[in-house]
Simulated scan of single mutants.
Amino acid sequence: MFAKQTVFVVGAGASAELNLPTGQELKKQISAALSYDRGYYIEFSDHRISDAINEDASSRDERNISNYIEACDLIRSALPAAISIDNFIDAHQGNHYVEFCGKLAIVKAIWEAEKSSKLSKFCGSAKQGISSVSQTWLIPFF
């Protein structure tokens, strides 16, 4: 059908039908992933976020995670007005903490969404998979 290799870039709206978050929903999930409780220790809603931040700080020989907390606060406060998380990260290109925390939260949000999406069934078994996406735009597209 196509003479050359072709790449299709499909936006977040197209994935909503597959039970994946839209851009607006993704921004909310990213903000939630970067929320934390400030007690004696900083505790993120997901221990894997804490672990990844602590590991990155350690690899950079940083004794505390205040730069990461500042980046999380910046992302959470500005994200509602941002066009997208990608646009926000791009606007802060070169700020390791914003880039790291933003991408970390993107991975968490998409990973969680994919587990309960129609794609998880589609990729799981051929028989169940086709029926899980049979009423979506994927079948006519392919």
Rank of each mutant, 00 (worst) to 15 (best):
F2W: 08
K4S: 14
Q5C: 03
T6H: 13
T6P: 06
V7F: 12
F8R: 08
A12N: 12
S15E: 03
A32Q: 14
A33V: 03
S35L: 04
Y36W: 13
D37N: 11
R38A: 12
Y41E: 05
E43D: 09
F44G: 02
D46P: 00
H47Y: 09
R48V: 07
I49D: 03
N54I: 01
N54D: 09
E62V: 00
N64H: 10
S66N: 15
A71N: 03
A71C: 06
D73K: 09
D73V: 03
I75M: 07
P80W: 05
P80Y: 07
A81P: 00
A82W: 07
S84Y: 03
I85M: 15
I89C: 12
A91F: 01
Q93G: 04
G94S: 08
N95Q: 11
N95D: 15
G102N: 07
K103L: 09
K103I: 01
L104M: 13
A105D: 03
W111Y: 09
W111M: 07
W111F: 08
E112K: 10
K115G: 04
S117V: 13
K118T: 07
S120D: 12
S125G: 11
A126W: 09
A126I: 10
Q128F: 05
Q128G: 05
I130G: 06
S131Q: 12
S132W: 05
V133R: 08
Q135E: 15
Q135Y: 09
T136V: 12
T136D: 14
P140I: 10
P140R: 12
F141Y: 10
